[in-house]
Computed example of a mutant assay.
Amino acid sequence: MNELDNLDRAILAVLTRDGRIPVAKLAERVGLSETPCTRRLKRLEQDGYITGYRAKLSRRAMGLGVLAFAQVRFSVHDRTLADRFEREVLAIDRVISCHNISGTADYLLKIVATDLDEYGDFMRDVLRTLPGVTSVESMLSLREVKPDDGLPAY
């Protein structure tokens, strides 16, 4: 990867707020003409700084009123079991992020559900039945103070 300069960082900062901005407007915002801005944008994509573009969906508008975090623990720490767990988690749409963590738990999952009943069913019928899982501790989000809007462009 190439080193980022201030113009690259400015481009990334604008794109994190508006990924659909036309190149002409992006160039104007960062103080470049279109051609050099386009070149930088393509390089940022090719170098892996920009991994894709997507729409940010409203959880509430999608009918997903529950946001939960689940700490998942294993009693046996076996690589094959962990690999199976991770493969299965990747296929579950309700799990919107999964992190292998340090501390008393093995994984931290961010999960969405329509309501508490559906979340309870998901816990009983899906999460607790995954390979290796021996215990799950849930924490429900009462209010989202700062949403995940992507990485800052330092």
Rank of each mutant, 00 (worst) to 15 (best):
Y107M: 08
A82M: 12
V133S: 04
F85R: 04
G103N: 08
S138T: 15
K25E: 13
V95E: 03
D93E: 15
G103P: 01
D47M: 09
R87L: 08
L67G: 04
D8Y: 00
L44K: 07
S135F: 11
F122C: 06
A68N: 07
S58E: 08
H77T: 02
C37H: 06
K110C: 10
L90F: 09
N100I: 09
L81V: 15
D78T: 02
D121A: 13
L142A: 10
R17G: 15
F69A: 10
V72Y: 02
R124M: 11
G132T: 05
L81W: 04
R94F: 05
G65I: 00
M123G: 06
P131Y: 01
I92R: 07
A70P: 01
G52V: 08
Q46H: 11
R143I: 08
L41P: 03
M123K: 14
T35S: 15
L116H: 12
G132E: 06
L12V: 03
V95F: 04
A13G: 09
R40Y: 07
L130N: 00
S33A: 13
L151D: 13
A91S: 14
E86V: 14
R124I: 12
T16F: 03
L12A: 05
H99C: 11
L32D: 04
R143E: 14
T38K: 14
A153E: 10
G132N: 03
T80D: 10
G65H: 11
K146M: 13
R94E: 15
T104E: 13
T16P: 01
T104W: 07
R124K: 12
T38Q: 15
V145M: 10
D125S: 11
T51F: 05
P36R: 09
V136P: 12
V23Q: 14
G120V: 05
V14K: 04
A91Y: 08
K56M: 06
A91N: 14
E137V: 14
M123P: 00
L64P: 02
G63I: 05
D149G: 12
K56A: 08
S97A: 15
A13N: 12
M62F: 05
N100Q: 13
V72P: 00
G63K: 02
R84I: 03
P152G: 06
Y49I: 03
A27I: 03
I11C: 02
G63S: 03
R17A: 14
G132M: 02
K110W: 05
R17W: 12
K56Y: 06
V76C: 07
D117P: 01
I96P: 04
V136K: 11
F69E: 09
D18H: 08
D149K: 13
L32V: 10
L81K: 08
V133C: 03
Y49S: 04
K42H: 12
D149Y: 10
T129M: 10
